[in-house]
Design a protein around this nucleic acid. Structure first.
Length: 505
RNA sequence: GGUCCCUUCGUCUAUCGGUUAGGACGAGAGAUUUUCAUUCUCUAAAGAGGGGUUCGACUCCCCUAGGGACUACCA
């Protein structure tokens, strides 16, 4: 088994948008697979027909495309271990269920959900297991004739796994070490439902992982309690020697308060919990996504990777290749991680800072267009290069830099009060002449001439620059003044100064 | 209730028996600056509690407390 090819899977249910915790689980699977030159498989676990949500499968595929974590095999890609959609594997599961039944390792049960509810109400801590199965209506208590006739009558039934009590089941977890659970606390889990001829998660999971030659099952901690059941199932099928290795990841917790991260936390605190925006097909409710909120996919990947794992060095900014090279399941933490969305924005800030200007420009152009600004990519890119160091999201650019494209219509009162002195109009009029006489409007020349003029007149640099900024920007923000005037060009610079002198007096 | 998992600064974490318990986010202070921001420097901030084991415990063991998950004909 140690020489087996690494094959891992991400196997979500198409019940809605993909939760960010699921994204992290998938990411860890991806990192592990790529590190070992293995395969990353996409399987859809749609064995609960009642919970199917249309569009969810497509959403998930699109999310991974955006994140840059491509699958090697599976739904939408293909491969020779398919089909990869569980609803298309009915015949396969049927065969294995029948095998278990024939070998006496599972049995048929006719108890209706209502009858079970009644039992639960009647008996405290009722569990369908060795201690109670004798009281129920199943193939263990009914005669073969009765069972056959019930089935012939079209009575619905389920197949339950026959758990032998009193046995210690050992689960070897790559993150947690040995976890030991006694089979007596396990119940006879439903493996198969006649109602839709579909297996439940537990059966489908084991059969598929075996048939798809999955080497490692890396999944959320919520599966740890049922891991012993899965071990028992592998044993029942005689597949224990090729059973995948398990790794149960810690959960993502709420940023504050108690419990695990939920969609509500995102709504309440104002951050996305889904990779992509999602519109609920039934209610029409829209949930925000990381993509639409302006996160860069690499930033999301980096941020998520470090929530529950770290390379053991002080490096926090890691490219996908670096993550692949350094990822180590044994270095995953065991405790749940609070979802620190503030740090997530810091990651985005860093990734924007290190992105090249051209790659940010299309998103900025879109914002410019929304604000009625038509400009060349070249000019938009110039502003990006000047301003990207100050933002965490591209959309934050507009309020910080709209003066590059739109002349001020008003002058910020506070700034004017502080920066527009009684002599400012006079000084600005003089500066206007200096600028008007410039033949060479290059930044270097502008700076040389203006600074020389300030020195000659023995003006205070701050007085000039602050007032000048007010005339061009309308408030006290923005990059270096010569950057602004150079971008605006001589004519626009003079026009804005004139208007400001007139207005501010 | 039962079972299992977990427990270092507010948060994410490093340490794998011997450290002034380190880094990052966030917070606060200061410096630089032509505004705003950036940047830089500094500061505050942690081993849940109690027992062991050991020359020595954040690190190993036990108990307690707290947190989390699971306990469906859902995954």
């Amino acid at each position: 088994m140690s020489n087996r090819k690494v094959r891992v899977r991400f196997a979500p249910s198409p019940t809605g948008p993909l939760h960010i915790g699921g994204v992290r689980t998938a990411l860890y699977n991806y990192l592990f697979a790529k590190q070992h030159g293995g395969d990353f498989i996409f399987r859809i676990e749609d064995t609960d027909s009642n919970r199917f949500v249309s569009g969810a499968e497509e959403y998930i595929a699109e999310a991974f495309q955006w994140l840059g974590l491509p699958f090697d095999e599976g739904v939408g890609i293909g491969g020779d271990k398919g089909p990869y959609r569980q609803s298309e594997r009915r015949d396969i599961y049927k065969k294995y269920v029948d095998q278990l039944l024939a070998e006496g390792k599972a049995y048929i049960a006719f108890d209706t959900p209502e009858e079970l509810d009644a039992k639960r109400a009647e008996i405290q801590n009722f569990q369908y297991d060795a201690s109670t199965r004798g009281l129920m209506r199943n193939s263990l208590t009914l005669s073969k004739e009765e069972v056959d006739s019930l089935i012939a009558d079209g009575k619905q039934y389920v197949v339950r796994f026959l758990i032998t009590p009193g046995e210690d089941v050992l689960v070897n977890d790559l993150i947690r070490g040995e976890v030991r659970i006694n089979s007596s606390i396990l119940d006879d889990k439903v493996l198969y439902k006649s109602a839709d001829n579909l297996p439940t998660y537990h059966l489908a999971n084991i059969v598929d992982d075996h048939l798809m030659e999955i080497s490692h099952v890396i999944r959320g901690e919520e599966w740890l309690p049922s891991a012993p059941l899965h071990v028992l199932l592998y044993r029942a099928f005689g597949w224990e020697d090729t059973m995948p290795q398990f790794a149960h990841l810690p959960l993502l917790l709420k940023p504050d308060g108690k419990g695990k991260l939920s969609k509500r936390d995102g709504d309440r605190l104002g951050f996305p919990v889904f990779p992509l925006q999602w519109t609920d097909p039934k209610t029409g409710d829209v949930s925000s996504g990381y993509r639409e909120s302006g996160y860069l996919p690499q930033a999301v990947v980096n941020f998520l990777a470090l929530l529950g794992w770290n390379p053991g060095t002080e490096q926090e900014l890691l490219s996908l290749d670096e993550l692949i090279a350094q990822f180590d399941l044994s270095k995953c933490s065991k405790a749940g991680a609070r979802f620190d969305y503030v740090k997530g924005t810091w990651f985005n800030h860093e990734y924007i800072l290190h992105s090249d200007d051209a790659s940010l420009t299309p998103a900025f152009q879109e914002i410019l267009r929304e604000n009625g600004v038509e400009t060349s990519d070249e000019r938009a890119e110039k502003v990006v290069s000047l301003m990207k160091g100050r933002i965490s999201f591209v959309r934050e650019l507009w309020p910080l830099c709209k003066f590059f494209f739109v002349a001020p219509t008003a002058y910020d009162e506070k700034t004017a009060k502080k920066r527009w002195k009684e002599y400012s109009a006079q000084q600005m009029t003089e500066l206007k002449d200096v600028i008007a006489n410039l033949d060479d409007f290059s930044m270097d020349n502008q700076e040389a001439v203006v600074m020389a003029w300030i020195a000659e007149k023995e003006y205070k640099t701050g007085d000039i620059m602050n007032a000048w900024r007010l005339t061009l920007v309308g408030e006290g923000i923005g990059p270096h003044m010569f950057e602004i005037s150079h971008f605006l060009g001589k004519d626009e610079t003079l026009r804005r100064m004139e208007k400001a002198i007139e207005t501010l007096g």
